[in-house]
Design a binder for these strands. Sequence first.
DNA 1: TCTCGATTAGAGGATTATTCTAGAACGATC
DNA 2: GATCGTTCTAGAATAATCCTCTAATCGAGA
Lengths: 199, 199
Amino acid sequence: MPRNSVTATKPDRREQILDAALTCFLSQGLAATTIDQIRSESKASTGSLYHHFDGKESIAVALYLDRLTSYETGFLETLNATNDAKDGISAVVHHHLRWAQEHPADARFLLGHVYLERQLARSGDLPEQNRRFYGFVAEWIRNRVNQGHIRALPADLFYALWLGPAQELSRQWLNKRSTTQPTNAADLLADAAWNTLRA
Amino acid sequence: MPRNSVTATKPDRREQILDAALTCFLSQGLAATTIDQIRSESKASTGSLYHHFDGKESIAVALYLDRLTSYETGFLETLNATNDAKDGISAVVHHHLRWAQEHPADARFLLGHVYLERQLARSGDLPEQNRRFYGFVAEWIRNRVNQGHIRALPADLFYALWLGPAQELSRQWLNKRSTTQPTNAADLLADAAWNTLRA
DNA sequence: TCTCGATTAGAGGATTATTCTAGAACGATC
DNA sequence: GATCGTTCTAGAATAATCCTCTAATCGAGA
């Protein structure tokens, strides 16, 4: 069986289905949307749907991974484009808020269905993808700590102080509980993060 | 001639159902658990289940509201037991982390299914309950700002800086991504919050 | 005891999820 | 450009699940 080479020009079916599912999940909730709704919204047939995915939950998990990857890719590009510690800390806060504001549907889905991360972890798809992300970020942190630019903290604590506030503000904005546009708060949150994390 | 004999005890069917649902939702995910599983886990009958709730989604929403109320009640009690601004800020951070650690199942459900808040808002149950919570907290903040003890910030930003890091750390710990026990980080996060928020 | 509203019960029809068989489109190979 | 293996699409058939409905039980008060 010849291995499927580079998946460069994929037929859009898979993505059509993911997009349709996102629309349905956000407007009605995951439990309330039926396969048939996804089917008609995406113009795919039942067979096609089950060819690409194992079922409704499987679509949700794939969607979660897809959007998470998109976020993390931007995160790493942003981080790599900076040099000193302060710029890195700040740029990522800005990226986080900008991403949430520019991709509200994706962000709402990711923030709203965090529990899918556990299913993802069980399924074994998360590890490679995400382990690499966390590993990279942890190393970035370690380097700056060694250079004496930032406080020596465990990576999980560091991460929480770094992005927790941006995350929480995004969450409130996406839930329509706050009226502060995330990007308008970016400078303030970036400064706060830096002041907390600097050596 | 339907029989029955026991069932006399009154451990509130409604709560039994909520507890059973929590167990199922956490172990299999909301989409994957069936009404029948909740039924057998809770020892209730189909009819009883539908008497108390409108369906699976409705159970999830009720569960969300129930646990959220429990969290918020503790939050307000904690806040009311303090006087000066610094103590209040710190005590609530501690409360947040302690609650997550002591009620991991509840916390996992709340954090993992944030999207239910929107359904809750639509259903009209959230407003009174929750509006009061946010109103109270916003007023507490306003008072301390007026007294010149803390920075003048919009309530949503203030809240994000206050509890965002604790929230994010809890999330990581509950998802088994971090090994730092939330309560062991409490002093550090409380200090960080105070330093960011003080006038 | 009798009545009444609230609750529980579980069978059965309606809805939804998934499987299955068949064939079309694609792409590699010669 | 014909053949062959594979992937993808289709939609009917089947299985699983949801939810409605009627009837029965319980407990409190008259």
